[in-house]
Design a protein around this nucleic acid. Structure first.
Lengths: 195, 195
DNA sequence: GTTTTCATGTAACCCGTTACATGATTCA
DNA sequence: TGAATCATGTAACGGGTTACATGAAAAC
């Protein structure tokens, strides 16, 4: 119990929503999906899967194709396990998908939400994007005023570091604004190769 | 024992190298210095300070100006404590400053190293900057080939997320290249308001 | 006089990694 | 036939936060 990270649970449910999988395969997909800002090891994933089963969101299936029951365990435990969403799991995923409150503005939470925007209602996408942007603009203001206060006391490199950090956030704000514009126009993100 | 994070130790020694301070003041400076990529709470800082004292890198001084010994503790423990570097502490800091190996290329380690570039030898700065850039270029290559492999299977938003992550890293590479150029020319970083 | 900020600490918890253990399957 | 990769799991540890506890000093 209690193995939760919010973001892991979300991503697992989302990936299994598309198609059932082994933990092993799941982990690879996970690290492609979230790779640009997060990664998970087996030590995190497997216990999380067990916990999601215990919560009734997933069910385990022994793949009939390949038995693969090594003698490790005393009585035929441990085989290739395919995880599949239960109806409760689907419901839970929809629930997570529809969240657009403050939590979804935070760095990592935002990342997962964004990764599943393909399955998210347009209205929710809008609220998440705008919330995120506002959060970052608040952060920018705090950073700027903090910088203004200490500016003279900092040497070149500290200043340069600060400037670079600031510009990273400014850049994300611009990115979000572009996405918001696109959403408003109901068009695909620039560079999209879809319809 | 064992309370270590590398980066916290480094930053603490570096800040106390400039001038002795209370833990409280130290934490604020810490979060200005590293704020753009990291923050620490008291629950981390205070135990770390104790551990650095135990290792002989810091000494505690009760500030004679203000006694402030509240009745909390059984026998006059807990007063305003000023932390000061011992000679061993200074030596340790120089040691950390001169490190330019693989560890210093990693995200957070690089951050602290950079923050103290003002006290770092030029040759070391060069090696750190170039090492970091090479690390990131390796990462870019891995990201690009991973992306190329899965490109078709990803929807708009996943793709967009990937693209944004990629460009973040590309941007940092450009930044590093500028810094390296500047170092080569022995000039101040652009925008610098120094001599 | 009361709110804010200064100031120090700790215990409970959380989230996650590393290293280990075990074995099947695939491919050169 | 041996290496790489597939596949599952756990125990020990690491590093950090939150919430709590306590109180002085300054500012309003």
């Amino acid at each position: 119990m209690s193995r939760r990270s919010g973001i892991l649970e979300f991503a697992v449910l989302g990936l299994l929503h598309d198609s059932p999988m082994h933990g092993y395969e799941l982990r690879k997909r996970l690290n492609v999906l979230l790779g640009s800002f997060r990664a998970f090891s087996y030590g995190t994933l497997y216990p999380c899967l067990k916990s999601l089963v215990a919560q009734g969101y997933l069910m385990e299936e022994k793949n009939p194709g390949d038995p693969y029951v090594p003698a490790t365990a005393i009585n035929g435990k441990r085989s290739k396990i395919v995880y599949r969403l239960t109806p409760e799991g689907k419901q839970r995923f929809e629930e997570l998908l529809s969240e657009s409150g403050p939590d979804a503005w935070e760095d990592e939470q935002f990342g997962v939400h964004f990764a599943f925007f393909g399955q998210t209602d347009r209205a929710v996408r809008m609220r998440v994007l705008e919330g995120r942007r506002n959060r970052l603009e608040e952060r920018l203001e705090r950073m700027r005023s903090a910088l203004a206060k200490t500016r003279e006391r900092l040497d070149r490199y500290t200043l340069e570091l600060q400037r670079h950090g600031l510009e990273s956030v400014e850049r994300e704000v611009r990115w979000l604004n572009e996405l918001i514009e696109t959403e408003r126009g109901n068009r695909a993100p620039r560079g999209g190769d879809s319809p």
